[in-house]
Nucleic acid binder design. Sequence first.
DNA 1: AACTCATGCGAAT
DNA 2: TTCGCCTGAGTTT
Length: 282
Amino acid sequence: MPEGHTLHRLARDLTDAFAARGVRVSSPQGRFADEAALLDASTVESAEAWGKHLFVTFTGERVVHVHLGLYGSFAITAGVESVPAPVGQVRLRLVAADDERATYADLRGPTACTLMTPAEQGAIVDRLGPDPLRPDADPERMVERVRRSRAPIGTLLMDQSVLAGVGNVYRAEVLFRHRVHPLRPGTAVRRRTLEAMWDDLVGLMEEGVRTGRIDTVRPEHTPEAMGRPPRQDDHGGEVYVYRRTGQPCFVCERPVRTDVLATRNVFWCARCQPAYRPRAVQ
DNA sequence: AACTCATGCGAAT
DNA sequence: TTCGCCTGAGTTT
């Protein structure tokens, strides 16, 4: 499930599976049927991710824009002898086949699946903040936006126009790793803290692309190092605070706290991430 | 079997 | 601020 690392991994895998190949394009569910018919039997040029947005470019300057939302999925199955009948509501199916084997990808439950022009793609990208997974990203844009805003840092990190690709797990975890309380105003987060958080996100999210999961605990806090049972959970990775409400902090043993911020549950340790206490105004 | 909640976000109210 | 998307894992009945 999708934060930025999921989309970048998917872009890489779709490119490997389909780029420069002729593809059959269909919409078994029907909701993308007209567009699929226009694309059918053309060639995929590439797939690319910006933040949580995925763009699959076909010949003729046609771009399929996909956003998975909260529970969408785009599953690639390579090297099958025959392509099975669709299971569930498949919005978009891509199939590349030679005489022997077929590779197919099924898109289910996306928030967005639309056919657009490169110019329209550009307009979406222009609305996004820098993406830690893009080598050309400029972290200074994020730093400036945060430091000009009195909104809580926990809200700003989820704002895709401030920073693209971070979702609810990376938000909670990067704040913990840098000992920043989620409600601290952007204006009160030090520049060097924001720069360190950016660098940290680059490393964490690149690892996420490699492994397909979100792992944020440092070596000294892994299950093996601490002799604790590994997390058994739907996202699979080892984390400090995300969805650990009431359980002891791995660093200080205080129970993890939660509240709602930017319409989503946020998690933090009240000791490791002390509350912001503004100095009295003169 | 039914229900709840979730790594998200745009549209409707 | 609430709703809808309409998937899927985990929990409760």
